Amino acid sequence: MKNKVLLAALCLVAAAACSTQGQVDPDIMQIATKPLTCSNKAECDLWWQRAHTWVASHSKYEIEIANDSLIQTTGPDGGKRALAYQITRAASPDGTETIGFSAHCDSSLGCKPNPWEAGADFKLYVRGEGAGVPQGSAIPSQKAPDATHPETLPGRSATLPNGEVMSQ
């Protein structure tokens, strides 16, 4: 009986946390869910280079795989709030390519940073619209992983209409 009461109390605390912190800014959501589609080889190669730079500078986990179609970090580690990333690159018959973004953590307390905010920041950076993005055809420089992240929301995953997976 004592365990049931404790479990019920924990569920209520978790539900309360989700209900008060589960809001995602609609502007962030719109940016995060907009497909990342490049239109030609030069643009796609530049965007893929930027995608790699963004992951290298934002992930607390090391990059495990980096090739022409996949950038994937290690993680997530049990119970940690840090995001693990999986970035994909897929060609379409019309010559365009789509870069997919997936981020998730393994914590019941939520992810840090918020996956929706990370997705929006990633897409702005890759498109060349974010802060600190090299312009033109310059190859982005690699910088050390960012040790600071904003507070975030409790975690859960969702599949977006464009097939990307976002976790929050």
Rank of each mutant, 00 (worst) to 15 (best):
W47D: 08
W47Q: 03
L10V: 05
V13N: 02
Q23N: 14
L7I: 13
L12M: 14
W48L: 08
I31D: 04
V13A: 03
L12T: 12
S57P: 11
T20C: 03
A15N: 01
E62W: 02
W48H: 01
A14F: 05
A8Q: 02
C38E: 05
T20S: 04
I28F: 08
T33K: 09
Q30A: 09
E62L: 05
E43C: 10
A16V: 08
Q30W: 01
A56S: 08
H58P: 14
L12F: 15
L46E: 06
K41S: 14
T37L: 10
V24A: 02
A16D: 08
I31G: 07
M29K: 15
Q30Y: 06
Q23Y: 15
S39N: 14
K34I: 00
S57C: 11
Q21L: 15
V24E: 04
I28D: 05
L36R: 07
A8P: 03
T20K: 02
Q21H: 11
W47C: 05
L46G: 11
A51T: 00
K34E: 08
A17L: 13
T53M: 04
M29P: 03
R50C: 04
T33A: 02
A42E: 14
S57H: 10
T37A: 11
G22V: 06
A51Y: 05
A8M: 12
C18F: 14
N40Y: 09
V5A: 15
A51N: 00
T33C: 07
A42M: 00
V24I: 09
K34W: 04
K60I: 11
V13M: 03
S19R: 11
Q49I: 07
C11P: 03
K41A: 15
T53W: 05
V55N: 10
A17W: 04
G22H: 01
T53F: 07
C38R: 06
L7P: 00
Q23R: 13
K60T: 12
I63W: 05
A56L: 10
L7A: 13
I63V: 12
D25E: 06
T53Q: 10
A8T: 10
S59Y: 01
T20I: 02
I31W: 09
T37Q: 07
A9F: 13
V13D: 01
S57G: 14
C18E: 13
C38T: 06
Q21W: 13
V13K: 04
E62Q: 10
P35S: 06
T53A: 15
A8C: 08
